[in-house]
C-alpha cells in the first residue's frame, strides 16, 4: 500500500501521481516519443530513494559506463571502438542492454548493479527491426540480404510501462562531471517479438506493475532477480505496428505506416 500526501492510494495511482510530478516539473523532458540508444541520450528512469519505499524520476544516460572508464574520452572509445597503438581495431563494447541470463555471472560488469542498483525505465513504446529475406526470382530461394522493416511496439491500453533496468553512478575524474548511466535488461523474445526482432529473438524485460514494484523495492536473492529479469511479458497484451523507415527523423516517429510487400505477423 502507498501513501501520497498522507492519503492511502493504490500503487497505480501512486505511480501516476509521481509521474505527473515530473511532467509538471519538466514537461519537455518526458515529452519525447523517441529515444534512440545509440545517441546515448538521457532517459526517464525510476530510481529507489534509499531507505524508503518511494522513488524519484530522474534523467539517466542510456549506456552503462563501468567505474574503470575514467573520463569522457575513454567513454567515447569504450562505446564507439577505436584504433589501438598496434593499428588493430578495438571493437566497441555495447552496454545499452544487459542480458538477464548472464548479468549475475561472476566478474560480469553488471553484477553489482543487478544486485544493488535496480531501476525502472519508463517507456511509451520501443522500436525494433524485422528482417525479411525476399525470395529470388531467379532460383526461388531467399536472398542473402534482408530487407528491414521498423516496428513500434507497446503495451495495449497503457500510455507507458516499465522496463527492468540497472544503473551505475559514473564520474569523469578529470572534469568532475557526474552522471548516472543505465542498461535495459533483456530477455528471450515472446511469440510476438520472435517474429519482429527475428534476427536476435530478444526483447526488453517489460514488467507488470507488481513485478516492477518488486524489482525496485524487493530484497531479492539472485534467483529471484534472474527470475524477474527473465520475465516474458505476455504477447497477447502487446501491440505492434510498422512505421516509416525514416522514423528517426519523423515528427511523429510512432505513426503507423503500411508496407504492401510485408507478410503479416502471425496472430499470438
Amino acid at each position: 500500500m502507498c501513501y501520497y500526501n498522507g492519503q492511502k492510494v493504490t500503487r497505480s495511482e501512486f505511480i501516476r501521481l509521481k509521474n505527473l510530478e515530473k511532467v509538471i516539473a519538466k514537461y519537455s523532458f518526458l515529452n519525447k516519443d523517441l529515444l534512440i540508444g545509440f545517441d546515448y541520450g538521457k532517459s526517464a528512469v525510476l530510481k529507489k530513494i534509499e531507505g524508503q519505499e518511494d522513488f524519484e524520476i530522474v534523467e539517466m544516460e542510456w549506456g552503462f559506463l563501468p567505474g574503470y572508464i575514467r573520463n569522457r574520452e575513454q567513454a567515447e572509445k569504450f562505446r564507439n571502438g577505436y584504433k589501438k597503438a598496434d593499428g588493430q581495431w578495438q571493437q566497441p563494447i555495447l552496454t545499452l542492454n544487459a542480458m538477464s541470463e548472464e548479468m549475475l555471472l561472476p566478474k560480469k560488469m553488471y553484477r553489482d548493479a543487478a544486485l544493488n542498483r535496480r531501476c525502472l525505465v519508463l517507456s511509451t513504446g520501443f522500436y525494433e527491426w524485422r528482417h525479411v529475406f525476399p525470395i529470388s526470382k531467379k532460383n526461388g530461394k531467399p536472398l542473402k540480404t534482408a530487407v528491414k522493416y521498423p516496428y513500434h511496439i507497446g503495451v495495449k491500453d497503457r500510455e507507458y510501462f516499465f522496463l527492468a533496468g540497472i544503473w551505475q553512478p559514473w564520474k569523469d575524474v578529470e572534469t568532475g562531471e557526474y552522471v548516472e548511466t543505465f542498461s535495459i535488461v533483456t530477455t528471450a523474445a515472446n511469440k510476438l517479438m520472435e517474429q519482429i526482432h527475428n534476427s536476435k529473438k530478444r526483447m526488453p524485460a517489460i514488467l507488470t506493475e507488481d513485478l516492477a514494484w518488486e524489482w525496485l523495492f524487493g530484497n531479492l536473492d539472485e534467483n529471484r532477480i534472474t527470475e524477474i529479469a527473465r520475465y516474458q511479458f505476455p504477447a497477447e497484451q502487446m501491440e505492434a505496428c510498422t512505421i516509416s523507415k525514416d522514423f528517426r527523423s519523423a515528427l511523429e516517429p510512432a505513426a503507423p505506416y503500411a508496407y504492401e510487400d510485408l507478410p503479416a505477423l502471425e496472430l499470438v
Binding site: M1, Y4, N5, Q7, K8, V9, T10, E13, L17, L20, E21, I24, A25
Partner: peptide, 16 residues
C-alpha cells in the same frame, strides 16, 4: 486524485 476507496481528494504536487 483518487484514494484507495476510489473517492476523489485534493492533493498538492509535489507532495507536502
Amino acid at each position: 486524485a483518487l484514494n484507495f476507496e476510489g473517492a476523489k481528494f485534493w492533493t498538492s504536487m509535489p507532495e507536502g
